[in-house]
Amino acid sequence: MRLSVDFFLFAAVGFLAQIVDGALGMAYGVISSTVLLAFGVPPSHASASVHAAEMFTTGASAASHIGHRNVDWNLFWRLVPAGVLGGCIGAYVLTSVDGDVLRPFVTAYLTVMGLYILYRAFRQRRKTVEPHGAVVAPLGVAGGFVDAVGGGGWGPVVTSTLIGTGGAPRYVIGSVNAAEFFVATAVSASFLIALLTGNWREAGGILDHAEAVAGLIVGGLLAAPIAGFVVRHVKTQVLMVVVGVLVIGLAGYQTWQLFTGA
C-alpha cells in the first residue's frame, strides 16, 4: 500500500506533539486536534481520531512512567474513574451535537488552552505540596470532559492545575499521563458505541481520516523514547511558549476560516 502525503504530515505532527507531551505532560491532544480542525476535519472526527491514536501513545507513555517509578498510585486511582466519567460524558455530547455548531466553541476553547499554556510558562511555581483530595476528582471529571469535547485538554487542565497548586512535577506528570491511557480508551469506546448504535450524527466519513490516525500513532510512538532527552536539554518554559503560540496561531487560522468561509 502506498502511503499518501497526509500520512507523513500527521506522522510529523504526532512526533512533535508526543515530544512536547512527554516533556511537559500535556499538549499531544491539543496540538493534534488543532491541526486536524485546521484541515477542515469535523470536531467529533478530530476528537475520535486523536483519542484512537492516544490509546497507543499514552500506553507507551504510561509504561515508561511506571518503569521509571514516576506514578503516585494514590493520585492515579483518584484520577482514573473521574477522568473516564468526564470523558464519556464529553464524547456523548460531542456525538449528539452538529459539528458546525460546536466548531466555534471548540476553536475558542483551544485558543483559551493556548493562552493558558503561555500563562503557565511564565508563572512562578509554588512550593511542592500533596494535591488536596477534594480537588482531584472534580478536576478529573472536568479534564476528561474538555478532553473529549475539545479533542485535547486532559494535560493542560489536570497537569497544569495540579502542578500550579504545588504538586510535585515528576509525580503529577507521571500519574496524569498514566491515567490518560484509561481516559483515551474510554473516550474511544464511547465513540465506537455511538457509531454502532447509530447515535453519532456525523459518523459518516470517519474512515476517511484513517491515514491521519495512523500517522499520529507512528509519529507518537517514534517520539516517545526521545522525550526524556528533550526534557533534559530544552527548557520547559521554551517548550510551553512554542506550544502556546502554535495552538493560538492555528486556532486563529480556524477562526479566519469560519468568518471568511474559506
Results as ranks from 00 to 15, higher is better:
R2A: 14
R2K: 13
V5T: 15
L9V: 09
L9M: 06
L9Y: 05
A11D: 09
A11R: 11
G14V: 01
A17G: 10
A17I: 07
I19P: 00
G22H: 07
G22L: 07
G25C: 02
Y28T: 02
Y28W: 08
P42W: 00
P42M: 02
P43M: 05
P43W: 00
P43L: 00
H45K: 10
H45Y: 13
A46V: 00
S47D: 11
A48I: 07
H51Q: 14
E54A: 11
F56G: 02
T57R: 13
G59Q: 10
S61L: 03
S61I: 01
S61M: 02
A63T: 11
N74Q: 10
N74V: 05
L85D: 07
L85F: 14
G87V: 09
C88K: 13
G90C: 00
A91E: 06
Y92C: 14
V93L: 07
V93N: 01
L94S: 06
D100T: 13
V101M: 04
L102T: 03
R103T: 00
L110M: 09
T111N: 02
T111M: 08
T111Q: 01
Y116R: 07
Y116H: 03
Y116V: 04
I117D: 08
R123T: 15
Q124F: 07
T128W: 09
V129G: 09
H132I: 05
G133C: 04
V135W: 13
G144W: 00
V149C: 03
V149L: 04
G150L: 03
G150D: 03
G150F: 02
W154A: 06
W154S: 07
V158R: 07
T159W: 12
T159G: 11
T161A: 11
T161H: 08
T165N: 15
T165Q: 15
G166N: 03
G167P: 10
A168V: 04
A168W: 02
Y171E: 08
Y171L: 12
S175N: 09
A178S: 13
A178F: 06
A179F: 15
E180C: 00
F181Y: 13
F182P: 11
A184D: 14
T185M: 13
A186H: 05
A186D: 01
V187F: 04
V187Q: 04
F191E: 01
F191W: 03
I193F: 15
L196W: 02
L196I: 06
E202G: 10
E202L: 09
G204T: 15
I206H: 15
D208E: 15
D208T: 14
H209T: 00
A210C: 07
A210Q: 02
A212M: 12
V213P: 01
I217L: 11
I217C: 08
V218N: 01
V218W: 00
G219K: 10
G220A: 01
L221H: 02
L222I: 11
P225V: 05
P225F: 05
I226P: 08
A227V: 02
A227R: 07
G228C: 12
R232W: 14
R232P: 11
K235V: 12
K235E: 15
T236H: 11
Q237A: 10
V238Y: 06
V242C: 12
V242H: 09
V245S: 05
L246G: 09
V247H: 05
L250R: 01
T255I: 09
L258Y: 13
F259E: 07
